[in-house]
Design a protein around this nucleic acid. Sequence first.
DNA 1: GCCGTTTTCGGCCCGACTGTTTTCAGTCG
Length: 587
Amino acid sequence: MSEDCRMAGARLGEMAELMELKGENPFKVRAYQNAARLLESADLDLKALALEDRLTEIKGVGQGLADKIKEFLTTGNIADHEALKLEFPAGVVEMLKVPGLGAKKVKLLHDALAINNVGELEYACTENRLLTLKGFGEKSQKKILDGIALFRRHAGRSLLSHALEAALPLLEAIRRNKVVYQAELAGSLRRRRETVGDIDILVSTDEAPRVMEFVTRLADVESVIGSGETKTSIRLKSGMQVDVRAVKPIEFPFALHYFTGSKEHNVAIRSRAQAQGLKLNEYGLTRSADGTPLRCLSEADIFKVLGLDDIPPELREDTGEIEAALNHSLPKLVSADAIRGSIHNHTDWSDGIATLEEMVAAAKRIGWSYLGISDHSQAAGYANGLKPDRVVAQHALIDQVNAMRPGLRVLKGSEVDILASGEVDFDAETRGQFDYLVESVHSRFNLSVEEMTARVLKAIEDPQVMVLGHPSGRLLQARDPYPLDYERVFAACAREGVAIELNANPHRLDLDWRHIRHARDLGVKFFINADAHSAPGLDDVALYGIGLARKGWLEATDIVNTRDLQGVLAFFSERRSRAAKLRPGRA
DNA sequence: GCCGTTTTCGGCCCGACTGTTTTCAGTCG
């Protein structure tokens, strides 16, 4: 049922893009965007609501949109949407993804220069054809070329979350096939990389051709790229490519290790095997001298034969995991059941879609013992940030909820903007009313590395700041991280007792796992936070945040929100006393 | 197209930044 919701939302979103290109009333476009965003992150039984004529009870859905949704539910299409698609080729819509290009400019490029896709746009830039257009100069042409380069770097890859959502149902379907003994995800998906190029599924069976045949007939398949006896590549309707490989049961552990990668990890492992007089490939592990196969029933067995501890897939990036496995110093990686709460979450008081009570109920369902509410601060006008009077009102509500003993403790927080000056939003008195602050950069991304670092370092000094939120500011496939001297920021966080956030939103996954270990080695502690803007958003901690922490080699003790409520409050007071010692006399 | 202690029309967030202009349009968050 939530699938209907997501798909209807996606359709309305596409319609909004097309209407924007067409130059429709911007407020009408926004109405479609709002409804799309809401539907895509909500979990409503649309069919039931439609049947009872109650679609208009959804906030932001009036009679017009209700009719469109109903049309989609009954016919699978929306006539207006089909008509709009005829007006603009898909390549024109794609140009909207180039940073710096909006609907107006794309339409002008399409109308005046007959540019139909990103490739033609790039060519037109190199021919200086944009310069003839009103409102375009050399700098904008250069900016568009840079934007295309960024767009290209991400093309063909998918977010981990999208890939997992597509892969898990396929995996289940394959596992249900009775000639399949075992099936697992492999590749970068199994290693929980933040983006993946394709979905790899490995199958153990004695009847490979039957499995291959079965795979080509799965529901979501758009086309079969290729299909042989043991390997089939398909393209899903979503555009994602899936490679399914079938091996014999005895080969499965070796193939699983091989196809999980990374390539770099495999090279290092194979050379280690070679040095021991062994040969490792996707079919087995044999003695080089006489070809005698060594039996392994699991990946752990393979590592054991090579004198190594079992290396979790997330660590297989050839960044020291093999040495650690040799020295028995691999970390005992954190798991989802260790998490006791999340302290960076939004409600409909700012830009979330769920009420505070709904968020609390969802957190309770997960089994958390505390939930921090951290709506945006006043400077975040675009996100409906709270002014001091609304802070007071929200705190009264939180007191009320806590007084009703909801089964967990609601903490009073705020995601405060780090202003361009490095000041933290709100006056000191208002800041003092919170249990804690998560501070984040949301504006002025184009500072130099010195300016940005100075800005963040200054903001860390506020004694109420407990967490540095999404430290790099990156949006996967959409926005590069802003320049920041991580070394100095990590050192300052360690000294101040300020934790660094591992933002579990699948579009962020920030701090990047490549930096996490270094921060930990400098003494930094972490929060894995949902940054939820809806009730289901809280699940991102378990779905994606844990994978991020594991890729960063973290154990439960590195992560503050594995502690109970008292432990988290103790972390806050420790932070305050450190700030007081570092800057005696300041509030 | 949605919404209503401003309720059936008229507003819907709005300021900063950029590149282009010479007072502004488009994009972004």
